[in-house]
Computed example of a mutant assay.
Amino acid sequence: MMANLFSIFDPSSSIFNFSLNWLSMLIGLLLMPLILWLIPNRMTILWNLIIIKLHNEFKLLIGKKFISKGSTFIFISTFSIIMYNNFMGLFPYIFTSTSHMCMTLSLALPLWLSFMFYGWINNNKHMFAHLVPQGTPSALMPFMVCVETISNIIRPGTLAIRLAANMIAGHLLMTLLGNTGSSILLSLMPLLILIQVLLIVLESAVAIIQSYVFAVLSTLYSSEVV
């Protein structure tokens, strides 16, 4: 039963042993010509407002002392990629790439490694000082160094697992309820449809929230190494 449920996340569609499911990440390229219009449409104006808001918020998180031109673009791009893939996974028969660790970890791990390399090469004293929180008693300093080191190492894993787990959980719940449609009473069908609609609305909110959380946490991690 559980194997059949999780099989909906398997990239099984293929031609000549080449998986077609990952091509769902390229569907958004069909929408790109809208941005190139001479007169911006409503979607372009809305997206520009979102980018400006994100830029201002990420700039505050990084800190004006260390902000440089274009430093927030990488986090805005990460937010855009994750949100796009999350939303595409809500459409029927489209592969949810962000439910796989190979996708989420490939986003989180390079970001974290780049922050760590930059911090330990350029600000090694700051990185060592960050291992001991301010006000820690002397007797607890060795223990706090171990705790801070472990919490720092598991950061890319927590980013990746949080995103993948939230995508898997919502899709599994919708799949479970959808499979019961053929076996429940006809009088309960409107209730099932209502629950499914509410779940889709919830998953749409989760798609935005999880991409925002991923981008914000990445920004906070980058602010700790400067």
Score class of each variant (00 low, 15 high):
Met2Ser: 13
Ala3Trp: 10
Leu5Ser: 07
Ile8Phe: 04
Asp10His: 02
Pro11Leu: 02
Pro11Trp: 03
Ser12Met: 05
Phe16Asn: 12
Ser19Tyr: 04
Met25Trp: 02
Ile27Asn: 07
Ile27Lys: 09
Leu31Arg: 08
Met32Arg: 14
Pro33Met: 05
Pro33Ala: 13
Leu34Gln: 15
Ile35Pro: 00
Leu36Gly: 12
Trp37Leu: 15
Trp37Ile: 11
Leu38Glu: 14
Leu38Arg: 14
Leu38His: 15
Pro40Lys: 14
Asn41Cys: 05
Asn41Lys: 10
Asn41Phe: 03
Thr44Glu: 09
Ile45Gly: 07
Asn48Gln: 15
Leu49Glu: 11
Ile50Gly: 01
Ile51Asn: 15
Ile51Arg: 13
Ile51Asp: 11
His55Asp: 13
Asn56Phe: 03
Glu57Lys: 12
Phe58Asp: 01
Ile62Asn: 00
Ile67Phe: 12
Ile67Cys: 03
Lys69Arg: 07
Ser71Trp: 00
Thr72Trp: 01
Phe73His: 04
Phe73Leu: 09
Ile76Asn: 13
Thr78Pro: 00
Phe79Val: 05
Tyr84Phe: 14
Asn85Trp: 05
Met88Thr: 11
Met88Leu: 12
Gly89Glu: 02
Gly89Trp: 02
Phe91Pro: 00
Tyr93Thr: 10
Ile94Cys: 09
Ile94Pro: 02
Phe95Tyr: 15
Ser97Gln: 05
His100Asp: 10
Cys102Tyr: 14
Met103Ile: 12
Thr104Trp: 00
Thr104Ile: 06
Leu105His: 01
Ser106Phe: 14
Ser106Arg: 01
Ala108Cys: 12
Pro110Thr: 03
Trp112Cys: 01
Leu113Gly: 00
Phe117Pro: 04
Gly119Thr: 11
Trp120Cys: 09
Asn123Asp: 07
Ala129Gln: 14
Ala129Ser: 14
His130Phe: 09
Leu131Pro: 10
Leu131Ile: 01
Val132Gly: 10
Pro133Phe: 13
Gly135Met: 08
Thr136His: 06
Thr136Gly: 10
Pro137Ser: 11
Pro137Met: 10
Ser138Ala: 13
Ser138Gly: 06
Ala139Arg: 07
Met141Thr: 15
Met141Tyr: 03
Pro142Thr: 08
Met144Pro: 02
Val145Asn: 06
Ile150Arg: 03
Ile150Thr: 09
Pro156His: 09
Gly157Pro: 00
Thr158Asn: 03
Ala160Asp: 01
Ile161Val: 15
Leu163Gln: 01
Ala164Ile: 06
Ile168Cys: 04
Ala169Leu: 05
His171Thr: 14
Leu172His: 01
Leu172Val: 12
Leu173Val: 13
Leu173Asn: 07
Leu176Gln: 07
Gly178His: 09
Asn179Ala: 08
Asn179Val: 02
Gly181Ala: 09
Ser183Trp: 08
Ile184Lys: 02
Leu185His: 10
Ser187Pro: 00
Ser187Phe: 08
Leu188Cys: 10
Met189Gln: 11
Pro190Ser: 11
Pro190Thr: 06
Ile193His: 10
Leu194Ile: 14
Leu194Gly: 11
Val197Asn: 06
Val201Lys: 02
Glu203Arg: 13
Val206His: 01
Ile209Pro: 01
Gln210Glu: 15
Tyr212Trp: 14
Val213Tyr: 05
Ala215Asp: 07
Ser218Glu: 02
Thr219Val: 14
Ser222Met: 11
Ser223Gln: 04
Val226Thr: 04
Val226Lys: 04
